[in-house]
């Protein structure tokens, strides 16, 4: 099959469209998360989304309708646990993540009917994405990017020096909530693409790659977005022609980019 025919498939077009938006959002948001040492929040929230998707399937509701509010609530819970209960952020992520995935497993064992559906979310399949999911991905991606655009300097300041940001009147607690809620939305969006197991890779790898070589924050955003976009496009294409799992292929290409930047820096 040649490339031209390949591009004419509707499911490939849908995958490219949704993938491009989610790739850009993940890389931009991931930059803030990596710099704030919150990388693993993506991993934790993806585990929560496993439980939330199970809940949706259990009650016969469209999984994303349950996953979006539940994962947003979980993201705020992580913040509140670490702020108020004197628990370190990574421990708070661990607690919420464990509860989320345990809930999903219990629901799966209780139901027995939707295990195949649920486990398809573990590794994701962007090639099987529906038109509703494409529209949802685009709309939510635009929402996330617009919020980042409007709060760009607040996020920048709170990430560079949170204490100083407070002295300039920036409500850093509010900014932290915005960041975690956006992460929750992004994680839910990415689950269909690369699966629960690999979501955090989409948030972390392009950002870390960009930080190796970028001279300036905006440059890091652009490099991260390009790396992420190319990885998704190549990942979908390669996985189709070589009959490989799409999510894992996207992550491996991202990892190769990171390896090349390490090598480039050494030369």
């Amino acid at each position: 099959m040649d490339l031209l025919n390949f591009l004419q498939y509707t499911f490939i077009q849908k995958a490219f469209l949704a993938g491009a938006f989610v790739a850009i959002v993940c890389s931009v948001l991931g930059l803030f998360l990596v710099l704030r040492k919150m990388s693993l929040i993506g991993d934790g929230l993806s585990h929560v989304s496993f439980g939330a998707i199970a809940l949706g399937l259990f009650f016969g509701v469209y999984p994303f309708c349950i996953a979006i509010p539940v994962v947003i609530l979980a993201s705020i819970l992580i913040l509140k646990i670490s702020e108020r209960a004197k628990v370190y952020g990574d421990a708070a992520i661990g607690i919420v993540s464990a509860v989320g995935i345990s809930g999903g497993i219990i629901l799966a064992s209780l139901s027995k009917g939707f295990n195949v559906d649920l486990f398809s979310y573990l590794f994701g399949n962007i090639l099987a994405i529906s038109i509703t999911e494409v529209i949802l991905s685009i709309v939510l991606s635009v929402v996330v990017l617009v919020v980042i655009y409007f709060f760009y300097w607040d996020l920048f300041s709170a990430t560079f020096d949170e204490e100083y940001a407070k002295t300039t009147g920036i409500k850093t607690n509010f900014i932290n909530i915005i960041l975690t809620v956006l992460t929750a939305l992004t994680v839910v969006l990415s689950v269909k693409m690369v699966g629960i197991m690999l979501v955090s890779a989409l948030l972390i790898l392009p950002a870390v790659t960009a930080l190796q070589i970028a001279k300036g924050f905006k440059a890091a955003m652009i490099i991260g977005a390009l790396v992420s976009l190319i990885s998704v496009i190549f990942g979908i294409t390669l996985s189709f022609f070589l009959d490989l799992p799409t999510g894992a292929t996207i992550v491996i290409i991202n990892a190769l980019f990171l390896m090349f930047t390490f090598l480039y820096k050494r030369i």
Partner: peptide, 13 residues
């Protein structure tokens, strides 16, 4: 309290 890995230029700081 500054994030030393943050790729900020002097102008941005």
């Amino acid at each position: 309290t500054i994030n030393v890995l943050f790729p900020a230029t002097v102008n941005e700081v």
